[in-house]
């Protein structure tokens, strides 16, 4: 905490967390009256379009920010238990199958940044983690992330967040299994195949006890929230505009269940976009309110997050084009299936 000069001890942290949790809960339980109040304060009411749009904004913004802060803090603490080095040790020597499931699960809790994708990838391979298992991790880590889950939870409820989590894991596991079966090790770049680990091997920071873990959680909140809040605000503002002004069922014609081509179009559209989940999800919520089908929209989201062109360019340094194409193809197929199944079932 910035207010504290000296490092806080565990009881101080627990006290701070308890106080923050109480404040958090009070705010969270009073979101609707708060939004009514703010809208009323500006002399507007929900019967006008502008009033409705504004109410949407005043309700969704604090809700999403609260959920984001809470979930990101918890994940920040959890991640201190799963340094990449630890995850690698857990996965090393695992066979296909169990290894893929474990890798996809660890992808949720291991800290991951797409700029580290290649070092991580090679670090795993050189420690004897099979290629398919490594891919399961590499697909799950960016796709099933806490920002996406927090936003889905905030805007669509826990059921959709849980579905996204489950399907994201499923795609990561199956895609990793498929890539493993294809035996594509020779499609790694030559320098990767020859890699020899040097003398100076880093085995991770020693854990600093609970105060250090809580501090890491708080640092995680500051990093993530500072990075994504402008996108969330812009996304919710745009979403509020759609909510207030776009006619009902407007989206149904081209993003509804009956348009068979909507799912592949959504996946293709997602690839060149490198948005974080934060900006996309509020817009998506508004689109669904106007008749877009959930499967189509989820496919779009997954494609934006899991199949980003910039990440492919980074991976190209270690993977030959055939392997990149296979990776993209397998993941895209998985996302397509998820989109169709969703539209059929719901």
């Amino acid at each position: 905490m910035p207010l504290l000069r000296r490092p806080a001890t565990t009881p101080v942290w627990l006290l701070l967390i308890a106080a923050s949790a109480a404040l958090w809960l009070t705010l969270y339980l009073n979101l609707s009256p708060l939004a009514d109040h703010l809208t009323g304060f500006l002399g507007l009411d929900r019967s006008t379009r502008f009033g409705e749009a504004l109410h949407f904004f005043f309700y969704d913004t604090p809700k999403v920010l609260l959920l984001l802060t809470g979930i990101v803090f918890v994940m920040g603490v959890v991640q201190t238990f799963f340094a990449p080095e630890r995850t690698r040790a857990l996965l090393s020597g695992r066979r296909q199958g169990v290894g893929n499931v474990l890798a996809a699960l660890l992808g949720i809790v291991t800290p991951f940044c797409s700029c580290s994708a290649v070092p991580l990838f090679i670090g795993f391979l050189s420690a004897g983690v099979p290629l398919g298992v490594t891919f399961s991790f590499l697909i799950s880590a960016p796709m099933v992330n806490e920002v996406a889950l927090a936003l889905l939870f905030g805007l669509f409820g826990w059921q959709v967040a849980a579905l996204y989590l489950g399907l994201g894991l499923l795609i990561a596991i199956v895609a990793g299994l498929v890539i493993g079966q294809l035996k594509m090790e020779r499609h790694l770049e030559d320098w990767v195949q020859q890699i020899q680990r040097g003398e100076a091997t880093w085995s991770g920071d020693p854990a600093g006890g609970w105060p250090a873990r809580f501090a890491a959680g708080w640092r995680h909140v500051r990093e993530i929230v500072a990075k994504v809040w402008p996108y969330i605000l812009a996304g919710i503002a745009l979403g509020a505009g759609i909510h207030g002004y776009v006619p009902e069922d407007f989206m149904a014609s081209f993003m509804g269940k009956d348009a068979w081509w909507a799912v592949p179009a959504a996946v293709l559209l997602g690839v060149p976009m490198y948005a974080n989940a934060a900006g996309i999800i509020p817009v998506v919520e508004a689109l669904i309110g106007k008749g877009a089908a959930l499967g189509t929209v989820l496919a779009f989201m997954m494609s934006v997050i899991a199949l980003s062109a910039p990440e492919m360019i980074i991976l190209r340094k270690a993977l030959k084009p055939t392997l990149i194409a296979t990776f993209a193809g397998v993941v895209a197929t998985g996302i397509l299936l998820v989109g169709y199944v969703f539209n059929l079932v719901l």
Partner: peptide, 12 residues
């Protein structure tokens, strides 16, 4: 990247 990998570092 090949240089970085020599140090055995997995996250940058």
């Amino acid at each position: 990247l090949p240089e970085i990998m020599k140090y055995g570092v997995m996250s940058t």
